[in-house]
Design a protein around this nucleic acid. Structure first.
Length: 233
DNA sequence: GCGACAG
DNA sequence: ATCTTGTCGC
C-alpha cells in the first residue's frame, strides 16, 4: 500500500489546528466506491504505561464478513490524548500498521469520529488524506453536536447538527440499546456511511463487527505480549 | 467560572 | 483509553 506523508506529528496546538483547517476544505462527500469488496477496521489498545500501544487493522470480506487479513504494530505513542486531536495521537501507529497490509481494502472504518468534529477533521477524516481511501468514523460515545434521541428500535437514526450543518448521525444498532455515533470520514456521504455501518452490525453487538474484531484483536495481542513478558521473570 | 470532552 | 468482580436483568 502506498503512503502519502503529508505532515509530521508532535506539533503545537495551533499547528494542529492549522492542519485541520487546511484539510477541512479537501473533504469530498462524493462516494467513490461502488459495492465494497474488502473493508478494514482499525483500533488501538494501550499498555499500562500509557506510552506503548498496539494498533490492529482487520480486513474482512464485505459480503461474507469473513476475516481475510489482520496486521498489527506495537510502538511508543508520544502524543497525549487531547479531545479534538485524537488523530495526532493515533495516526502514526496506524500508518505503521497500514504499511503491512497486503490486501486492497475499499473502505476503512475507524474507532472515533470523522466530520463529527469541531473542524470537521476527526480521526477518520484525517486518516483519509494519508491512505486515500473512503473512511467512516464510528464512535461509541457522544463527542459534540446537537441531536434528538433516536427511536428505540434498531435502525432508528437522527442527524447530529453543529453550526447549521449536519456533521453525523446517532444510530440505534440494536433494540433498546445505547446508540453509536456515525460520521463521514471522506469520500462517502452520510446515508451510505449509515448503511455500511448497519451492514456490519449482527445480533451479538451494538458495534459494527469490523470495528469489534479489530478491538478484540487489539486486547488479545496486548494480553499475549503482557503474558509473555510476565513469564520471562 | 463551570461543565463537557472521540480514544 | 485504562484500572476492575460480581451481579442485575432479559
Amino acid at each position: 500500500m502506498k503512503i502519502n506523508p503529508i505532515h509530521s506529528f508532535d506539533l503545537s496546538l495551533d499547528e494542529m489546528r492549522a492542519i485541520q483547517h487546511s484539510l477541512r476544505q479537501q473533504i469530498r462527500l462524493t462516494p467513490y466506491l461502488g459495492q465494497p469488496r474488502l473493508v478494514a477496521g482499525v483500533d488501538l489498545a494501550y499498555f499500562p504505561d500509557n506510552q506503548q500501544a498496539v494498533a490492529v487493522i482487520a480486513i474482512m470480506d464485505y459480503a461474507s464478513k469473513q476475516l481475510v487479513e489482520t496486521v498489527h504494530c506495537q510502538d511508543t505513542v508520544s502524543q497525549e490524548y487531547i479531545p479534538g486531536f485524537l488523530a495526532f495521537r493515533e495516526l502514526p501507529l496506524f500508518l505503521k500498521a497500514w504499511e503491512q497490509v497486503q490486501s486492497e481494502p475499499d473502505l476503512v472504518f475507524f474507532d472515533g469520529n470523522g466530520m463529527l468534529h469541531p473542524e470537521r477533521v476527526g480521526l477518520a477524516t484525517h486518516a483519509s488524506f494519508f491512505i486515500d481511501k473512503p473512511t467512516i468514523g464510528i464512535a461509541k460515545k457522544h463527542f459534540m453536536g446537537e441531536y434528538r434521541e433516536p427511536g428505540p428500535e434498531r435502525g432508528s437514526m437522527e442527524r447530529i447538527w453543529d453550526q447549521g450543518e449536519i456533521i453525523g448521525a446517532v444510530l440505534r444498532t440494536q433494540d433498546g440499546v445505547k446508540p453509536i455515533y456515525v460520521s463521514v470520514g471522506n469520500h462517502v456521504d452520510l446515508p451510505l456511511s449509515l448503511r455500511l455501518a448497519l451492514h456490519f452490525v449482527g445480533k451479538e453487538s451494538r458495534i459494527p463487527e469490523i470495528i469489534r474484531r479489530a478491538d478484540m484483536l487489539t486486547r488479545q495481542i496486548r494480553k499475549q505480549m503482557l503474558d509473555s513478558l510476565e513469564s520471562q521473570k
